[in-house]
Design a protein around this nucleic acid. Structure first.
Lengths: 118, 118
DNA sequence: TGAACATATGAACAATAATTCATATGAAAG
DNA sequence: CTTTCATATGAATTATTGTTCATATGTTCA
């Protein structure tokens, strides 16, 4: 991660710009969290799970069935989604029902859709 | 990727829901593209590059310098951003100047920010 | 309490990806 | 046309991640 500063022969950015960039760049921790969030969206299986949950709360087993995947794989991915606070869950008897955490999920996915649909 | 269908003892989702989910789920290719797009945002270095370009168009060397990273690493990541159509570039003499492709980038990043800032 | 079902979890393996190093390409200036 | 500077690219290495398999946890019902 550490690296010697590389420098153009002549510097091209104005001092002013450097100051603005440095001032506006969020803390490393925030940038890290942001990247972590997008990583969560960066997997087809998880995207599919979210799409399923757009329509209806659902138990693990039914999600696995709908996506034609193993229960364990879905469970692992649900954990990732849970940690990112994108889904919530409640127990109902033997089952665990998952649902979307909030509407950010829809917003974020829709924005992505817009971009790739150009 | 292929997997035997796993099925709950009793099926819990209504037939109706299955139909809706199946109807509303985008093509696999689209879901793949969507995941690919988010993967691009899912890396701190690329997020930083985008933040830098929010403020000003910039050559590779200056980006590397601002982020205190190697020229090669930045160049590799710019290629990824370029492929995702998130940045554009133009040649100016010996330098290659990169800039944001469009405003989706800001929108997407801002949405992510909102989520993690809760 | 024990059997059956639903889910979670840890280890292992395969696949991806980020950075570095070395080098190639390409432009400009002498 | 040769040197220098800016960038791109391929190979190698290390780190990360998704899925599977086996098994543990936890709930219900007989």
């Amino acid at each position: 991660m550490e690296q010697a500063v590389e420098r153009c022969q002549e510097q091209h950015v104005h001092e002013e710009v450097i100051n603005i960039v440095t001032a506006d760049m969020p803390e490393d921790e925030i940038l890290y969290d942001l990247a972590e969030l997008y990583k969560v969206f960066g997997d087809t299986t998880r995207i599919k799970i979210l799409y399923v949950l757009f329509e209806s709360d659902m138990c693990v087993c039914d999600i696995a069935q709908l996506l034609n995947m193993g229960q364990s794989a879905i469970s692992h991915q649900l954990r990732v989604l849970k940690q990112a606070q994108l889904v919530r869950f409640r127990r109902e008897g033997k089952q665990v029902i998952y649902s979307l955490a909030d509407d950010h999920v829809r917003t974020i996915i829709n924005n992505g859709m817009e971009h790739i649909m150009e």
